[in-house]
Amino acid sequence: MPISAVIVDDEPLARRELQYLLERVGDVDVVAEASNGIEAVKIIRNAAPDVVFLDVQMPGLDGFAVLKKLLDAQAMRPDAEESMPEVVFATAFDQYAVRAFEVNAIDYLLKPFEERRVRQAIEKVRARQLANAPSNVQTSIETVPQASSEERLESLLKLLELQAGGAPQQAGVARVPAKTRSGKVVVRSGQRLLLVDQHDVSFASIEEGAISVVTPQIEGLANCRTIEELAEQVDADSFWRAHRSYLVNIAHIKEVVPWFKSTYLLRMDDRKHTEIPVARAQIKRLRELFNL
């Protein structure tokens, strides 16, 4: 039986290239494509494919946010028959992120795609299908128990969230030297492109694909596609990924507000005194920062 696949990428050329290579590999049926994360969530839930080839860097919902929404939906329907598909990341990320994928036993394809790697990815999907098949159909291949797709994806998301919050280096994951940073953030305000000193930035947030940058005096749009891209431009010791949708400047936190069920809000020093939620995975980091 052919493997059913969904391709998610905001670049049409990348989708066509990957579909062409999957056709060359053979025995793979591309049942749908998505050009953004919001569309991807709906398509994946409706198509229930065996595997998703998922672009990491997309405007709006990036690849990791897509997984989070799918996993959250799965958790709300524990009795549903459909399970999470296997995921193959399509990425231009550096070797540090690639090693993170390897640690979590999830395959990846570096752009530009290579037929050899696409073929290997499909072989891994087949192997996992056999490993998860009922014992009466495991005839020709001896398999060992493997973590479910949900467990592996949850593990990856937790690792990435810890990394974003400045957690200690994971064993077996090599760091690469930080890129040279200018210390400035480009902010579009009206028809102007402002060069804002990063230390003046209170926080940045993402909503519907737009990255907003807020200082005590101004607010505008960043010249970035993702929060991750913006985080690479600023000082990792000063900025903290308190929540998947927010990157905050620690020096501009005015107040830590206890919230419900042992969670917290950060009240910032901008004109609106914006309140930012702290992700549960980041509460330990919050307590370390302020000795709570």
Rank of each mutant, 00 (worst) to 15 (best):
V176H: 12
K184I: 13
A65K: 12
A147T: 11
I276V: 15
R128Q: 01
K261L: 10
S205I: 09
I211V: 15
L61E: 03
K179T: 12
P12Q: 01
E23G: 15
L266W: 11
V66C: 05
E33P: 00
L160P: 07
A48E: 13
L286E: 01
D10Y: 05
H199C: 05
A92T: 14
E232H: 08
V118P: 11
P258A: 06
V137S: 11
A210K: 15
H199D: 15
V257Q: 10
E219R: 14
I106K: 12
R117P: 08
F260P: 05
Y96D: 07
A164E: 04
L13G: 07
V31R: 02
I218G: 00
I218K: 04
V118S: 06
N36E: 11
Y264L: 11
Y246E: 07
A14Q: 01
Q198P: 10
L193K: 12
T180A: 13
G172C: 10
L286P: 04
R280N: 03
L109K: 04
E17D: 12
A171P: 09
L71F: 03
T226P: 02
F239V: 02
I283N: 03
V30R: 00
K68G: 05
L266M: 08
G172E: 04
V125S: 01
V144N: 09
Q138W: 01
S140D: 13
Y108Q: 15
L54I: 00
R188W: 08
I43M: 06
S4E: 00
R116V: 14
A47I: 06
P258V: 14
R99V: 06
W259V: 06
L61C: 00
Y20P: 05
Y264K: 09
Q198R: 14
P277I: 09
